[in-house]
């Protein structure tokens, strides 16, 4: 049952999503599709970070009655790591901000050229 561990599964799915997201960013030519790939990449990285903080069999990092009534108050053996969760919490909100900004740029670009294909934007290419 070595492979059936929740932390490892989360890590694997996160890494695969990161690779799929990179593939989309590099391979697609439509700007909206590139932004969609970016959100997938973002989700994958968040998943990797949360999976790194997971400890097998432990509960959420909230000290309520179920945790504080343990014998000899051993919190270390009861909860998962709170630090990666706090980082991911802010990362998701910032990810939303970045996505919104990218979409605003995409709207501006479409207004300028009436096209979303990146091959049409060759003004700075020589």
């Amino acid at each position: 049952m070595e492979t059936l561990e929740l932390g490892k599964i989360g890590l694997l799915i996160g890494f695969l999503l990161v690779i799929v997201g990179f593939w989309g960013i590099l391979q697609q030519k439509n700007i909206i599709k590139i932004i969609v790939s970016f959100t997938i990449l973002n989700t994958g990285i968040n998943l990797v970070m949360v999976a790194l903080g997971y400890v097998k069999g432990h509960t959420a990092p909230i000290i309520d009655s179920s945790v504080s009534q343990l014998e000899n108050h051993n919190v270390l053996n009861a909860i998962v790591d709170p630090v990666p969760q706090a980082l991911v919490l802010t990362a998701i909100v910032i990810g939303f901000g970045v996505t919104a900004l990218l979409l605003a740029y995409a709207m501006k670009l479409f207004k300028a050229k009436k096209s979303l294909e990146i091959n049409d934007f060759n003004d700075l290419k020589w």
């Binding site: 690779i19 909860i79 709170p82």
Partner: peptide, 23 residues
């Protein structure tokens, strides 16, 4: 990512700064 995944060992107890926060 394959190497990272292979070298990852799941922790069984909180250590370091997380342990300080938890305690």
């Amino acid at each position: 990512f394959y190497n990272l995944y292979n070298s990852y060992e799941p922790q069984t107890e909180l250590t370091g700064i997380a342990a300080h926060y938890a305690e």
